[in-house]
Every structure is written in C-alpha cells, then in structure tokens.
C-alpha cells in the first residue's frame, strides 16, 4: 500500500482526522524534535515546542495553515517549529532577564560548539559551521539559532544595523555551499 503523501495527510488533518495527525507525527517526530532540541538545548522546552507545533497544525489557523506554493511542506513544518522555538526562547529570556541581569552583559562570543552541542561524530551541520569564519558562525548562531532581531544582532556584534542583513545572508549562503557538498536527509514524501 502506498504511503500517503504529506499533503494527503495535511488535507485529512484539516478534516479533523486524528489518525492522519498521528501518522504525520510519527513521520516528523524525530526531525522536529531534534531541531527543537538544538534550538532550546533542553528536552522539556523542546517538548513544549512540539506541543505548540502540533497544536497549531491541528487547529489549522493562522501560522498553522500551510499554503502550498510557498515551498515544501517539510520546510514549512520546520519553519513553524523554528518560530515556536524562537517564541519560547524569547519568553524564557524575558524571565531570565528579570532575575539575571548578567544575561545582557555577559555575552561572550558564543562558541558554536556550545550552541549546537553535539556528542555524535556525525553532524554535518556542525562540521559545516566550523568551516566558516568566526564572524559568519556568529551570524548563524545569533540569527538562526537564537532568533534575534536585526537590532539585537547589530548591538551584540557592534556593527551598523544596515549591514546585518548582508552578513546574515552571506553566512547562510556559505553554510549552504558547504552543506550541499555532503547532502542531507530527505524527508519529503
């Protein structure tokens, strides 16, 4: 029996088919959880992100609505996972700042090892990030993994606001070039 495509499942989810959500969950659990875990660096927070993502998907409103034509379904799922993570990071940060003033001052150059901590040998992303110059590593870390605003990045890195976009783009582009040499895991069905 042919496996239902992601879009088949999404359509069924819109019809409130619980089984379809479960199938989609099984298909993406590991990818989304791993990603959320990389973003949050905490298993409980990552689970909170998962909760948020699947709640949005099930409700199918606003951010939980997939518009085909705006890229692959899997990319869209990853985008809402990333947004849910950024959202939670920000909420947690607000709490931290309230009782830990050091947070804003104590921002040493975040070693990407520390941000994307990795115990396994096989981690293409980490390897690829490492090939980049420090400044580009930092752009990826602050923009991609911490979800910071343009202004925050400009302040943290002490660079003009207007240059942030170009630097982030360049860093992502370079990262991409390294990654494409290796090839990733294909999830889309």
């Amino acid at each position: 029996m042919a496996q239902p495509t992601d879009l088949d499942l999404y359509e069924r989810i819109r019809q409130k088919d619980k089984e379809a959500l479960e199938v989609l969950y099984d298909r993406y659990e590991k990818l989304l959880y791993s990603f959320a875990y990389r973003m949050m660096k905490d298993s409980q927070a990552a689970e909170e992100v998962m909760q948020d993502v699947f709640m949005k998907l099930w409700r199918g409103k606003g951010a939980g609505q997939y518009v085909s034509g705006r890229g692959k379904f899997s990319s869209w799922l990853l985008t809402i996972t990333r947004n849910a993570s950024i959202d939670l990071i920000r909420k947690k940060k607000v709490q931290e700042v309230e009782w830990d003033q050091r947070d804003s001052v104590h921002e040493d150059l975040p070693g990407v090892e520390q941000e994307i901590e990795d115990k396994e040998e096989r981690n293409q992303l980490r390897r690829a990030v490492h090939t980049l110059p420090d400044e580009q590593q930092r752009m990826i870390c602050l923009f991609y993994f911490q979800g910071m605003s343009q202004r925050e990045i400009a302040e943290k890195c002490d660079i003009p606001l207007g240059t942030v976009k170009g630097r982030v783009r360049l860093a992502l582009k370079k990262l991409r070039e390294h990654l494409e040499k290796e090839g990733g895991i294909v999830y889309e069905r």
């Binding site: 791993s34 985008t79 990333r82 994307i116 396994e120 991409r176």
Partner: peptide, 25 residues
C-alpha cells in the same frame, strides 16, 4: 527560505523522550 529551509535535516538527530507522542497528542 531556501537557504534556511532544510538546515535542520543536516543536524544531529536526538532521540525523543519516552512517552512524548502520547503526551503531545
């Protein structure tokens, strides 16, 4: 979006905690 879209697929996979599926769903 193209640059960022699939980055997570290059990341190290993490084993989800036991029982998460049940809790989430």
């Amino acid at each position: 979006e193209d640059l960022m879209g699939d980055l997570p697929t290059y990341m190290e996979q993490t084993e989800p905690p036991a029982g998460m599926k049940q809790r989430v769903l």
